[in-house]
Amino acid sequence: MSIKINSNRCVGCGRCIEVCPGNLIKRNIEGKAFMKHEKDCWGCTACIKECVVDAIDFFLGADIGGTGSTLSIQSKGDLNIWKVKDIQGNIQEIVINKKDANKY
């Protein structure tokens, strides 16, 4: 389980580098973010929430059942819009209002 940073989208703002709790993301010579320690990701998704250009996808490794789907998130006002995209490109959205508490 880890993240994939799309370098075409990355604008090099460094927000993900700053926030990663494991100091796992670094800057490459082009000034863009890259995942240096792929196997050391905890899966907290802090970087994905921080990215303003939607350049980071989260995925599960095959060792824990991953089959190429990705998870991303966009924040719009009070809403967190989570998107799961499977390997064929089908997208499923789950919208969570930040002001709603968990039911459980």
Binding site: G43, L60, G66, T67, L71, V84, D86, Q92
Partner: peptide
């Protein structure tokens, strides 16, 4: 979040 991804992915 990985648990929800796993449920949906599998």
């Amino acid at each position: 979040p990985s648990q929800t991804l796993k449920w949906l992915e599998t």
